[in-house]
Simulated scan of single mutants.
Amino acid sequence: MAIKQVAVPDGRARIIHTGLTEEIVIPARRNWFALSFLPIWLALWSLGGIVAVYALFTEFQLFLLVWLCGWALGWLYAASTIAWQLFGGETIRVEAGKLIHSCRAPLWNRELAYDVAQIRGLSPDRGPSFFEGAQFQTPLLTYGRIGVIKFHYGAKTIHMASSLDEAEGRQLVDWLAARLPLSAGQ
């Protein structure tokens, strides 16, 4: 029986050099089950919402109004999950004494800057597993709470790089540690 050699996989993140700065660019992880299921669910969910709005205008019902509020939240969650997986991503860079983390998707962009002098305990983390619902989690809703890079910032633990595996997170922690002051890794 022949033994097949396993190729060493490349990482998903890219380090981009732009002039005087470097940044880590991380595309969103695509889950093909979610991307095939959610558009169908969203179409049926939209149809249900249209029927409910029609019924609400025909005869006002408080229950239906409350249900439509939940319907809208479900619709936004499904649409944002699709948008994140198709077009979203994260960037991480160190510049001017700040660690800057941004998440972007269509119609949504969030960028936070952390004072590098206040960062402690920079380390890799395992990130969420498939069974913890990782395929449906997006930084649009869980910003700073999931990811394979973590650090302590004051009394809060910050997570980044939600679309990566633990091994790649370890590589990026090493990359970041070389660019942060020595106190950040402690």
Rank of each mutant, 00 (worst) to 15 (best):
Q135F: 11
G154W: 04
G133L: 02
L141I: 02
L140D: 02
G144S: 06
P128M: 06
R145T: 11
F151Q: 12
F131D: 06
I149W: 11
Y143N: 09
T142F: 06
L140M: 07
A155P: 04
G127H: 07
F130K: 10
S123F: 04
A155G: 11
Q137S: 14
S123Q: 12
R145D: 15
P139I: 00
H152L: 05
G144Y: 02
K150G: 12
V148N: 13
L140P: 01
P128N: 10
D125G: 13
A155E: 05
P128T: 03
G154R: 08
K150H: 14
T157N: 05
G154S: 07
G154V: 00
K156T: 09
G133Q: 05
D125T: 05
F130I: 04
D125E: 09
H152I: 02
P139V: 01
G147I: 00
R145A: 11
I149D: 15
S123H: 15
P139C: 00
R126I: 02
K150F: 04
G127M: 11
G147D: 07
Y153C: 08
K150D: 07
G154D: 06
K156G: 06
I146T: 12
G133T: 06
I146S: 14
S129V: 00
T142L: 11
I146V: 11
G147F: 05
Y143H: 14
H152P: 00
R126P: 06
D125W: 13
F131W: 10
G133E: 07
P124W: 08
F130P: 03
S129T: 09
E132V: 03
D125C: 10
T142Q: 11
L140T: 02
E132G: 04
F130Q: 06
P139W: 00
P139E: 01
R145K: 08
G144F: 03
T157M: 10
P124Y: 02
Q137T: 12
G147P: 04
Y153I: 00
T142S: 15
P128W: 13
R145V: 01
H152K: 10
A134I: 01
K150A: 13
S129L: 05
T138S: 10
D125I: 00
T138D: 03
K150Y: 06
G147M: 03
T142A: 10
I149L: 08
P139M: 01
L140I: 04
Q135N: 13
A134W: 01
F136V: 04
Y153M: 03
V148R: 07
D125Y: 12
